[in-house]
Design a binder for these strands. Structure first.
Length: 373
RNA sequence: UCCUCGGUGGCGCAAUCGGCAGCGCGGGUGGCUGUUAACCACUAGGUUCGAGGUUCGAGUCCUCGCCGAGGAG
């Protein structure tokens, strides 16, 4: 059911163009996946997501487990049916919430005790529970339950989290094996902070367990870009060529271009939607904030070269007016543009890989963004 | 005409017994990377209606005036 096929590889960088087959359709890689934590990509409807080119979205185990609950979504016929999205869905395991809700939990080798951020109630999330919730949701790609550590960290703390992540990865794999779950793919997650030997070891031991794809976690959590790229280099070298690689939580355009050059096939990030709701816009020539006085009488689109709904139909001055007036359409148009930009950036990258010119494409795109190569 | 209440940043308001003039919104700017986030942070902005007076010291007390709201006639 789940297949990954490489179509073309860049002769200069490690970039590859591929195809992931899932029960809900084919995903062309490299791909950017919009984040829909609560069974909705904030401010966007499924037809709008389709229109801007998205063919896979992310959702979240922890949030849906707390509300509305896995049983309810299973009764609705699964997450696809519940939220009206007919294309593939990847669900994160709740591992990131171990990190982002750190003040509300305590970790043991068995699992994580959480206080709900909604009502304070106590819950115990284990690898098995995360798997069972994701089974009930019916996502196409399931993520292992992992432990993401805060950077900066120490070698010992990172190693402990890595060992726990590996132990949990084995339990997640085992859960799938005993339940004979075949419709859903399971991805392992590489941890190890910024320690090359830990990244390498974690990758190798995950491959020994055997997964349908491999994610790189624990990055874009405060380290510099160079540190992130160094961790990517070592991790990608250690991962098998014939499985998809997913860089979790990364969404700045320059990070995507550099990630692709290092062999990453999949990305997700809240940045386009969150920053969009906050008036921050991504363009091929860098970022800007629509709130600024500079755009008060600017009757040109967000990005002249952009073909998104917001750029084709509206001006900066109008969207700025909507934003300052507290109008919900501002958040929608800015989210729409940002998502379109990242989804299309990956589509363009894919084309250039197939044409054999990714290195040049990346160089030009990075220069345009004003980013150092 | 008289009585009562009020006048403080762009707007709405606070300031104990007379003791460093603050808050919210709005404005300006910055931040946001597997979403606790249509969020968060920083910043600018004052002749406290005017003129006198009492006091070491007045947004605060006294006198007169101006403006606004309500009431009486």
């Amino acid at each position: 059911m789940f297949k990954f096929r490489i179509i073309a590889e860049c002769p200069v960088t490690g970039a590859r163009a591929g195809e992931i087959t899932t029960p809900h359709g084919i995903i062309e890689t490299p791909v950017f996946m919009p984040v829909g934590t609560q069974a909705t990509v904030k401010a966007m409807s499924p037809p709008e997501l389709e229109e801007l080119g998205a063919r896979i979205i992310l959702s979240n185990t922890y949030h849906l487990y707390l509300r509305p609950g896995a049983e309810l979504i299973e009764s609705a016929g699964g997450l696809h049916s519940f939220m009206g999205w007919r294309h593939p869905i990847l669900t994160d395991s709740g591992g990131f919430q171990v990190f982002s809700l750190s003040s509300l939990r305590s970790i043991t080798d068995d699992g994580v005790e959480f206080r709900s951020h909604i009502d304070g109630s106590k819950h115990f999330m284990t690898p098995e529970l995360s798997m069972d919730v994701q089974r009930a949701l019916g996502s196409d790609i399931v993520m292992c339950f992992d432990e993401c550590v805060k950077l900066p960290t120490t070698e010992d703390i990172s190693r402990a989290a890595m060992e726990r992540t590996l132990s949990w990865a084995g339990r997640c794999r085992e859960f799938f094996r005993t339940r004979e779950i075949e419709r859903q793919a399971l991805f392992g997650i590489v941890q190890g902070a910024l320690y090359p030997d830990q990244r390498e070891e974690c990758s190798r031991r995950l491959v020994d367990i055997g997964f349908d794809g491999y994610a790189i976690g624990g990055l874009s959590v405060g380290e510099t870009h160079d540190e992130m790229y160094a961790a990517l280099d070592v991790t990608n070298r250690a991962l098998p060529r014939d499985k998809p690689r997913y860089l979790m939580g990364v969404g700045m355009p320059e990070n995507l271009l550099e990630g692709v050059a290092r062999g990453i096939d999949m990305f997700d990030c809240v940045l386009p939607t969150r920053n969009g709701r906050n008036g921050n816009l991504l363009t091929r020539t860098g970022r800007f904030n629509i709130k600024n006085t500079l755009y008060e009488r600017d009757f040109t689109p967000i990005d002249e070269s952009c073909g998104c709904y917001a750029c084709v139909n509206f001006t900066k001055a109008y969207i700025r007016h909507l934003y300052r007036s507290g109008e919900i359409l501002a958040a929608r148009l800015c989210s729409w543009h940002n998502l379109y930009f990242l989804v299309q950036l990956m589509k363009s990258a894919r084309r250039s890989i197939i044409e054999g010119v990714y290195d040049e494409f990346r160089r030009d795109a990075m220069a345009s963004l004003g980013a150092a190569l």
